[in-house]
Design a protein around this nucleic acid. Sequence first.
DNA 1: ACAAGTATGAACCTTTTGGTAAGTACCTCT
DNA 2: AGAGGTACTTACCAAAAGGTTCATACTTGT
Lengths: 133, 133
Amino acid sequence: MTNATDLPAPGFSCGLDATLRVIAGKWKPLIIYFLVQGPNRYGALKRAVRGVSDKMLIQQLKELEADGIITRHDYQEVPPRVDYTLTPLGRSLAIALAPLCEWGSANMAAVTHLLEERARWQATPPAHATAGG
Amino acid sequence: MTNATDLPAPGFSCGLDATLRVIAGKWKPLIIYFLVQGPNRYGALKRAVRGVSDKMLIQQLKELEADGIITRHDYQEVPPRVDYTLTPLGRSLAIALAPLCEWGSANMAAVTHLLEERARWQATPPAHATAGG
DNA sequence: ACAAGTATGAACCTTTTGGTAAGTACCTCT
DNA sequence: AGAGGTACTTACCAAAAGGTTCATACTTGT
């Protein structure tokens, strides 16, 4: 369980905290989770992770590789061909991400709705009530 | 499963993408996961989520409340007493976070190590090899 | 010849995120 | 009276995250 009342390691609130350090970033969880399907080329990743820019994708891929989550295979061909695969560590992480994916699918309507709400009060002048304190 | 090749909703790559919109932010997953224990006061949260500042904690708490993930209960007492509880939606999300927590606990040594590695090549001059292209 | 695809690098700039420091209103303890 | 605790708010500032654009070196399709 590891709740935040017992502190296992010097830097972490709990196991979740540790995990978050690894997958922090807008795209990393998506990249990792997409790779559970098997090795994928750069282009495939780019199309799968919608909205990601080249810069970001490359950057996060490099970080994931440096972190031992994925492996990069360069075929040394021309035109370039490269693919990315999860390491065993990466695979275990991807599996741990699955429930979040399911949660998102199950609650997609709710999420869509709350995202619209957010957009709404970002557009309106933030009329803040006088705080009770 | 919902992999990114089939796109269920206009804005999302997959369910995971949806989830990430909700829990984006350095502290939200930690807050949510800590609250599975039951209602907690602001101060307790602050102590649990180590390193969080007042500003951030309050801010994320407000967002989570606006998103329907948590509920705020103000006892209207003085000195102030307030506690935060997960909504059913929040609780289901917290449950989906559990595997990540376990992953972090199980792989804490690896995570600690890779974090040290990161720190290392942040300190050193990034001697980049000449790109093959 | 020209456009497009392939996987990246680099420079530049904007937006978002997060931290610090100070303040509020009232209470209790010393 | 002064310090410390409670749950916040606000203003200001630094850093990180992320986006855009241009460029590479070569191939294939038209």
